[in-house]
Design a protein around this nucleic acid. Structure first.
Length: 275
DNA sequence: CTTTCGTCCTGACTGC
DNA sequence: TGCAGTCAGGACGAAA
């Protein structure tokens, strides 16, 4: 479930471990991920030096000298770890990169919902996976007005809308639930029913929950780890997610946190506090 | 156009 | 202990 904070944590970790390094070897063990990995990927990577490391929504973009970009999406179970050459190869290590000075980077994804792709620099805006993405919630332009515009004329629930990457890039199930809790908005509200002050509150809640999660190194539920293998610890700060029946931290309601299913996804919320 | 639903996949967990 | 069944969920494509 790597969402924006987890991808951002990986990006920052990679900055330190592989920034400026040269790729000595690239081994692609299997290419049948969510979409096929380009067959020429490995040969393009060998010899390349790592340039800028950026992120768009839940996508990690690793620039290579020359004119290429390595695009990585973690899907459900993807993880990237960096270590020495002594680390044993694991099942589901789909891409293994060895760098000068001996660092070994592994992309591991048991469920293979992840994506690895290669694109030319300047193609970012046209790439099918990136072209339709909504605003970056941590960029300055993201506020209640922008969010309100994205939610206008949407009849779906606000919860479903927040999971739509066209509305805002980077939220998944965990942070959508947590942001709605912080904004005191019911996940069952129609997306287009929010008043301006409510969209402002929600935009601010999205921003703060993501920032706090990044500070905590992300949330570790089952699969996610930071690139050094350590767990994130934001899961200890969840107010509602995966806390069905437990007391809501913000009020004394008897029922506690409730779980409902929306669009096949679990939603956790406090019916008293969120309206 | 928007929205919903089924699908992909494997590991962790539950219940018998 | 073992095995079958269920569940989790990001994003796409098809259908409504």
């Amino acid at each position: 479930m790597p969402e924006l904070p987890e991808v951002e944590t990986v990006r920052r970790g990679l900055l330190v471990t592989i920034g400026g390094r040269r790729i000595l070897s690239a081994v692609l063990n299997r290419s049948d991920l969510r979409r096929p990995v380009p067959p020429f990927l490995a040969e393009r990577l060998v010899g390349a030096r790592i340039g800028a490391l950026t992120r768009r929504g839940k996508y990690l973009l690793i620039a290579l000298d020359g004119d290429g970009l390595l695009l990585v999406h973690f899907g459900m179970s993807g993880r990237v770890t960096a270590g020495g050459a002594d680390l044993p190869a694991l099942r589901h290590d789909h891409l293994i990169l060895t760098f000068d000075e001996g660092t070994v980077l592994r992309f591991n994804d048991p469920r293979r919902f992840g994506v690895i792709d290669y694109l030319a620099r300047g193609e970012e805006d046209r790439h099918p996976l990136l072209a339709g993405l909504g605003p970056e919630p941590l960029e300055p332009g993201f506020d209640g007005v922008a969010l309100g515009a994205a939610l206008a004329h949407r009849s779906s629930t606000i919860k479903a809308a927040l999971l739509d990457q066209k509305v805002v890039a980077g939220l998944g199930n965990i942070y959508a639930c947590e942001a709605l809790y912080r904004a005191r908005l019911s996940p069952r509200r129609r997306a287009d029913s929010l008043a301006p002050r409510q969209t402002a509150r929600l935009a601010e809640a999205i921003r703060t929950v993501l920032e706090e999660a990044i500070c905590a190194g992300g949330s570790s539920l089952r699969d996610y780890v930071q690139i050094n293998g350590e767990l994130g610890y934001f899961q200890h700060q969840w107010a509602v997610y995966a806390r069905e029946g437990k007391p809501c931290p913000g009020c004394d309601c008897k029922k506690g946190v409730r779980r409902i299913v929306q669009g096949g996804r679990s939603t956790f919320f406090c019916a008293k506090r969120q309206r």
